[in-house]
């Protein structure tokens, strides 16, 4: 390789390494405080107290959904592995919203309650026909499918 190309190669690799190191540091730093959401147990240990408004993520507890008869008000409980948080929301919920579904609610704390201004449904990365899901659910005796299919990923 001639000296000119050698010099260009060294220079470009040096710039590239600098950029990679810089972005790795940024990514590492952002991992601490660029969390899209807090789980109920994180909120209960006080990690979200410095935010007036934040996102709460978790599963909708089975049997906790209560709809008001005369308005769009809905209350439900969001749970994670070790915490639970009552949520209140007035508005239209996404189609995927139901029991045992991962949801992300944006809002603020009002005492021990979380008052949501927006509720989004999260779906997992598993795709299968309904018949297969029913058959697997039967085989697993009602165990939720994404826990059995993707043990390497937390269910949220």
């Amino acid at each position: 390789m001639n000296p000119t190309r050698q010099r260009r190669l060294t220079l470009i690799i040096a710039v590239l390494v600098a950029v990679i190191v810089a972005s790795a540091l940024v990514v590492y730093a952002l991992q601490q405080n660029m969390n899209y959401l807090f789980t109920p147990s994180q909120v209960q240990t006080g990690e979200a107290t410095r935010y007036k408004s934040f996102r709460l993520g978790g599963m909708v507890k089975a049997g906790s959904i209560q709809r008001s008869n005369d308005s769009l008000k809905v209350t439900f409980t969001v749970v994670d592995a070790s915490g639970a948080m009552p949520v209140e929301y007035i508005g239209i919920l996404p189609d995927l919203f139901r029991e045992d579904q991962s949801v992300i609610a944006t809002g603020h704390m009002d005492g021990a309650r979380f008052v949501a201004t927006e509720v989004l449904a999260k779906h997992d990365e598993t795709y299968m026909p309904k018949e297969l899901k029913d058959a697997m659910a039967k085989a697993h005796d009602g165990k939720h499918i994404d826990e059995s299919a993707t043990p390497d990923k937390q269910s949220l």
Binding site: V27, M34, N35, K122, H123, D124, E125, T126, L156
Partner: peptide, 10 residues
């Protein structure tokens, strides 16, 4: 790397 609304890789 982060908690995202987007699901993981299928």
């Amino acid at each position: 790397w982060w908690n995202t609304l987007h699901q993981g890789s299928t």
